[in-house]
């Protein structure tokens, strides 16, 4: 009696774990089945190489390139903001800062990650954009630059905390060897510790990129909703995520072409984030083997 009860509990618990697998299967199935309908009407070549994305107009074109360029433009700006700042913070906290300082600052940095993204969108639109307009000519009221910078601020904690973990796990003996030869902290940090932690830092950057690609509200609010194929950061762009939001705000009928486009956009997004996540797993695994 007791024993069978135990088994029931174990299966019940295992089922909860299975829900996560069902979630993954569900995501993949939903994305594939709905975009299947999309690709029956639009050829893959048009999707990948057409330079216009106008599914909501009467003259419909289904080239994903403008959404991709919008996504990559904002992501690159975000990464250029977050990576230098994030890595410098990581080096400073791990190599220079006093223990007490580190313990006080880390939770404060975590607050940056706790602020809802819609709030960052407001920040980009009402503070950063007017600021940029004040000294860069030609910045529109919706633009990729402002959204990208704010996304960068948002992912600073991702990069700084993962990089700091990587730096921190570099053996103390390597630092001592370097100090022992008369190297300064700066030399030791950037010539010994950072190279030794490079794979961990790379993982943090990749995860930061994945976050930026999937980020939605900041770009939906501040980058505009115009799918233009441009690399000019002062212009309004539309990312994959912002497009999904834009369509969702209207009334979308199931089975309509608009409905299918958001899944086609979704599977493209999923492809990139999935790829980046797995590259980071692969690096992590390789790196662990190296140290063991």
């Amino acid at each position: 009696m007791k024993r069978s009860g135990e088994k029931v509990i174990e299966y019940g618990l295992a089922f909860s774990g299975l829900v996560t697998i069902l979630t993954t299967i569900g995501i993949i199935w939903v994305l594939i089945s709905e975009s299947w309908g999309f690709f029956r009407e639009v050829s893959l070549a048009d999707f990948l190489f057409d330079t216009e994305w106008t599914p909501l107009f009467t003259q419909k074109r289904y080239g994903i390139l403008p959404l991709l360029s919008g996504t990559f433009l904002t992501t690159i700006i975000a990464i250029f903001t977050a990576v230098p700042v994030g890595i410098i913070i990581a080096v400073y906290l791990s190599e220079y800062a006093h223990k007490n300082f580190r313990q006080t600052v880390k939770p404060i940095l975590e607050i940056l990650a706790a602020v809802p993204t819609v709030v960052y969108g407001f920040f980009a639109l009402t503070v950063v954009t007017p600021f940029l307009q004040s000294f860069i000519p030609g910045v529109g009221s919706f633009n990729a630059l402002s959204a990208g910078i704010v996304m960068g601020i948002m992912i600073i904690p991702v990069i700084s905390s993962l990089s700091e973990d990587a730096l921190y796990s570099v053996p103390k003996s390597l630092r001592e060897a370097s100090y022992g030869m008369g190297a300064t902290k700066f030399q030791t940090s950037f010539k010994v510790v950072v190279p030794a932690a490079s794979s961990g830092i790379l993982v943090s950057i990749i995860l930061g990129i994945a976050r930026a690609i999937g980020e939605t509200m900041v770009v939906a609010i501040a980058a505009g909703q115009q799918p233009t194929l441009t690399l000019d950061p002062r212009e309004a762009v539309e990312t994959i995520t912002a497009y999904i939001v834009q369509v969702s705000l209207g009334d979308v009928e199931h089975g309509s072409m608009e409905y299918k486009t958001i899944f086609a956009a979704g599977i493209t997004l999923f492809f990139f984030t999935f790829l980046l996540n797995n590259v980071s797993f692969w690096i992590k695994k390789k790196y662990q083997e190296k140290y063991e």
Partner: peptide, 22 residues
């Protein structure tokens, strides 16, 4: 399950929206 959870943590939230929608 463990591998899967690590992967899910990297899926953008808007994709969950598409899952919920369907």
């Amino acid at each position: 399950i463990e591998l899967n959870i690590a992967n899910l943590a990297g899926v953008p939230s808007i994709i969950y929206g598409l899952l919920g929608l369907e």
